[in-house]
C-alpha cells in the first residue's frame, strides 16, 4: 500500500469513526451514570431521519441538526422513563426503542416523501460540507506531514471536528467538574449520592439526555455529513459497534477515541477490497468484507477486552434499601 492509498484509508477511517465516536461518547455518559443503553442505534437512526427530512424541507442543515437532536432526545426521554422512573429492564427498553425507531423512521420518511422510506438527496446548505482547515493548501506540499494534514486532518465536515473536540471535553467534564464526580459516583454507588443529598433521578436523567444529544449529533452526521440523505436502516449496527467500543474503551473518554478509530479503520478497509487484496494477496468476497466489522467487533469483545470492569451500579434501577 503506498502512502497516498494509506492516507485515503485513514481519511475514510476518520469519517467512518465519527458516528461511532459520537455514539460511543453518548453511551459513556449514560453507562457511567449506571444506565445501560443498547438503544444508541435507534436514537441515531431517529436522528438521521429527522436531520435528513428537516434539512431537506428547510434547506438548512442547522435546523436539521436541531431536529436530529430533538428526535433523539424523544427516545432518550422514553428510555429514561422506563429505566429510571419505572425501574424497568434497561436492555429490553433499549431493544424495544431500536425496533420502534427502525419502523417509525421509514413510516415518517415514506409518508413525507414517498420514496420508499428514503429522504430526497441533500445538497448545498442542506448538508454539512467539508471544511478546509487553515494552511491545509499551503503545506500540502510538505513531504509526509503536508499530505497527512491536508488529506486526513483537513477537509472534513463540521461534526467530525465536533466529535474530536468532544473527547477532551468529555474527559474534562468527567474528571474535572462537580457534575462529572457526581455522574461517576451515581454509576458506581447511587446510595452514596442519595445520602449526600443529591437526586439520583435528576443526575441519571441528565446523563440520559446528554446521551440523547450526542446520539443526535451522531445520527445527523450519518444523513447530512457522511451521506447526503437518510436511507432505511442506514446506521447498520453502528450503535451496537459503538457499545462494543465503549466496553473496549473501559468507559474512558480517550480510550473511546482510540477504540472507535480502530472500528472505523475496520470499516474503512472493508470498503477497499483492492487494498486488502494487494496487502494480503488473497481476494476476499464482498459479503465477507461487509461482515468484517461485525466479526472484528466480536473478536474484540471476546479476546482483547481483558478485565473490563463496568460501572458497578450499571443496569440496576436504584431502590433505597430497607
Amino acid at each position: 500500500m503506498d502512502y497516498a492509498t494509506f492516507l485515503q484509508v485513514l481519511d475514510t477511517t476518520l469519517r467512518l469513526s465519527t458516528p461511532l465516536l459520537l455514539a460511543c461518547l453518548a453511551g459513556l455518559y449514560s453507562e457511567r451514570a449506571g444506565i445501560f443503553d443498547i438503544g444508541l442505534e435507534g436514537k441515531m437512526l431517529m436522528a438521521a431521519m429527522s436531520a435528513g427530512a428537516v434539512s431537506y424541507l428547510t434547506g438548512s442543515v442547522w435546523i436539521g441538526l436541531l431536529a436530529a437532536i430533538a428526535g433523539s432526545l424523544l427516545f432518550a426521554v422514553v428510555h429514561g422513563l422506563a429505566s429510571i422512573t419505572f425501574r424497568g429492564n434497561q436492555l429490553i427498553s433499549g431493544v424495544a426503542l431500536n425496533f420502534v425507531a427502525s419502523g417509525i423512521t421509514v413510516l415518517i420518511a415514506q409518508s413525507l416523501f414517498g420514496q420508499g422510506g428514503r429522504t430526497p438527496p441533500l445538497d448545498g446548505a442542506a448538508r454539512f460540507n467539508p471544511i478546509t482547515l487553515p494552511l491545509a493548501d499551503q503545506i500540502a506540499g510538505v513531504p509526509i506531514i503536508g499530505p497527512f494534514y491536508s488529506e486526513v486532518i483537513s477537509g472534513h465536515t463540521f461534526l467530525v471536528y465536533v466529535g474530536l473536540l468532544m473527547v477532551p471535553l468529555s474527559w474534562w467534564v468527567l474528571y474535572r467538574t462537580r457534575f462529572g464526580l457526581r455522574l461517576r459516583a451515581v454509576g458506581e454507588n447511587p446510595a452514596s449520592v442519595d445520602t449526600a443529598g443529591i437526586s439520583v433521578v435528576r443526575l441519571r436523567y441528565t446523563a440520559v439526555l446528554i446521551t440523547g444529544i450526542l446520539c443526535g449529533l451522531a445520527g445527523a452526521y450519518m444523513s447530512t455529513g457522511l451521506q447526503a440523505g437518510f436511507g432505511k436502516e442506514m446506521t447498520a449496527g453502528r450503535g451496537y459497534i459503538a457499545l462494543a467500543a465503549l466496553i473496549f474503551a473501559k468507559w474512558r473518554p480517550w480510550y473511546c477515541l482510540w477504540a472507535t478509530l480502530l472500528f472505523g479503520f475496520f470499516q474503512a478497509i472493508a470498503l477497499r477490497p483492492d487494498v486488502i487484496e494487494n496487502t494480503i494477496g488473497i481476494s476476499i468476497p464482498v459479503p465477507a468484507l461487509d461482515a468484517l466489522p461485525y466479526i472484528l467487533t466480536v473478536v474484540v469483545l471476546a479476546g482483547l477486552v481483558g478485565k473490563a470492569i463496568p460501572p458497578r451500579a450499571g443496569g440496576e434501577p436504584y431502590v433505597k434499601e430497607r
Partner: peptide
C-alpha cells in the same frame, strides 16, 4: 449519618468521597 452499610464510592479516593455532594463550585480542584 454513618450507615451500617457504608455509602462510599469504592473506586474514588477518600478526598473525592468526602467532597461528593459538598462541592464548593462547578469545578472540582
Amino acid at each position: 449519618m454513618v450507615f451500617q452499610h457504608f455509602k462510599l464510592v469504592q473506586n474514588f479516593t477518600v478526598l473525592e468521597n468526602v467532597v461528593l455532594g459538598a462541592e464548593d463550585g462547578a469545578l472540582l480542584r
